[in-house]
Design a protein around this nucleic acid. Structure first.
Lengths: 210, 210
DNA sequence: CGAGTAACTTACTGGGAGTAAGTTCCGGCG
DNA sequence: CGCCGGAACTTACTCCCAGTAAGTTACTCG
C-alpha cells in the first residue's frame, strides 16, 4: 500500500522449490562458513534469504539436514579435486605429493568450505557423525588404494596394517589443514606437502616390501 | 517424614565446597563421557549428584567451565603418562614407539576419558577452542622436543619444518585413537604403535640429517 | 542462644530448534 | 470469466536447556 520504493528489490515473490532450495543452500554455506554450526541459528539463515524458518524445515528437515546438504556439496568438490591430482601422477611417490598439494590448495582457495567441512563438521556429534565419517572414509579409501598400488603383486596384503597407514595419513593431513588455517603465516601448500611426503614416503615404501 | 529406609543413603546433607566440587566433577566426567557434551544437560548432572543446577553454576561458572575442568584433569593424566613413557626410553626411536603405546593404552583403559578429551573436546567450537588447543599444543611440543633431540647438534633447525612434522604426528595419533574406539576389534596398541613408528621413523631420521 | 555466612533451592528469563495450523498466490479446467 | 486444488509461504506457538535473581536452610563460632 506504500508508494513504490526506489531502493527496494522487486519484492522477491514466490519462487519454485528448486530455486528456493538453491538460494537457501547458498546462504547456509556462507553463514555456516562465517559463524560455524553452533553460531548459526535457523532464523539467521531464514532472515538472510528473506523467508520464514518453517520453509527451511519443509525443504531440509532439520538444522542437521541443511548442514549435511552443505557438507555433501563441498565434500564432492574436494574429493574430486584431490583424486584428479592423484590420478594424474605417474608414480606413487608423486601421487602422494600431488594429492597433498591439491588438498591444501583447495582448502586455501575455499576457506569457508573448510570450516564447514572439518572445523565443525568432522567433529560433530549425533546424527552427523555418520555422514562425516563417510566423508573421511572416502579419503581413507583413496589413500589405501594408493598404498596397495605400491605393493609388489606377490605380497600378501595385511589389511589391518593398510588401514592403520591410511588413517594415519588422513589424520595428519586433517590436522595440518586445521593448523594452517589457524596460523598467521602458514607454510605454502607445496612446502607442507613436500615435508609430509618426505616424512611418509620411505616408511611407506619399506612397509610395502617387508 | 518417612520411616528410615534401609536402602537409602543417609540423606546426603550439606558437604563442604571442596567435597561437593569433587562429587560434581566425578559425575560430570562420567556423564559427559557417556553422552557427550551436547547430549548432556546441566540438569542431568545436577540430578545425578542430587543437587540443584545453580549450585553447579556457582562452583563452575558455566557448562563450558565444568567441561573444561574435566578436560584439565584428563589432559594432565594423559600427558604425564605419555611423557613418562617417552622419557624412560633410551633412544629416540624407542621413545617414539613407547610414547605411541602409552597413548593408545591410556585411551583403552580410560574409554570415557577419550570421548571427553577428543571426540568432543578437541573439536569444540567457541570458548573451548583455546583450551583444547592448549591441550594439543602440549603434545605438539613434546613431539617437537623429540624431533629436535634427534637432530645433529650442528644442523640449523628449520622450525617451520619441525612444526609441520609435529602436527602431522599429533594428527595421526589422534585420528588413529578415534578410529580405534569406533572399530569393533581394533588392533592392539602395540600393533598400531609399531606400524606408526615404522611409517614415521625413517622419514624422520632422514629429514633430521638432510 | 543468636548472628553471620556458606551451602543450597525455587522459580524464573531468554533464546533457539522444531511444529501445527493456517493463508496467499498461481495454474488449470469448466 | 470464476473457482478450485495444490504448492509456496507465514504466524504463532511449544519445548528444552543454559543461565540467573532472590531467597531459604543449616552449620559454626562468639
Amino acid at each position: 500500500m506504500q508508494v513504490t520504493s526506489t531502493t527496494e528489490q522487486p519484492p522477491k515473490r514466490r519462487r519454485d522449490r528448486a530455486a528456493r532450495e538453491r538460494e537457501i543452500l547458498a546462504a547456509a554455506e556462507r553463514i555456516f562458513g562465517e559463524r560455524g554450526y553452533q553460531g548459526t541459528s535457523m532464523d539467521d539463515i531464514a532472515a538472510a534469504v528473506g523467508v520464514s524458518k518453517p520453509l527451511i524445515y519443509q525443504y531440509y528437515g532439520s538444522k542437521d539436514g541443511l548442514f549435511l546438504a552443505c557438507l555433501a556439496r563441498l565434500r564432492a568438490q574436494l574429493l574430486e579435486t584431490v583424486s584428479d591430482a592423484v590420478m594424474a601422477a605417474t608414480d606413487v611417490e608423486n601421487a602422494l605429493y600431488a594429492g597433498f598439494v591439491a588438498w591444501f590448495q583447495f582448502l586455501d582457495e575455499h576457506p569457508q568450505a573448510w570450516s564447514v567441512l572439518i572445523d565443525e563438521g568432522m567433529l560433530a556429534t549425533g546424527p552427523m557423525a555418520a555422514t562425516t565419517e563417510e566423508v573421511r572414509n572416502a579419503f581413507v579409501e583413496l589413500i589405501a588404494a594408493m598404498v596397495r598400488l605400491n605393493l609388489p603383486p606377490s605380497r600378501p596384503t595385511d589389511d589391518a596394517e593398510i588401514e592403520i597407514l591410511a588413517h594415519s595419513i588422513s589424520g595428519a593431513t586433517e590436522r595440518l589443514a586445521i593448523w594452517r588455517t589457524r596460523t598467521p603465516n602458514p607454510p605454502t601448500p607445496q612446502k607442507v606437502a613436500r615435508t609430509l611426503k618426505d616424512l611418509l614416503w620411505q616408511g611407506l615404501d619399506t612397509l610395502s616390501k617387508s
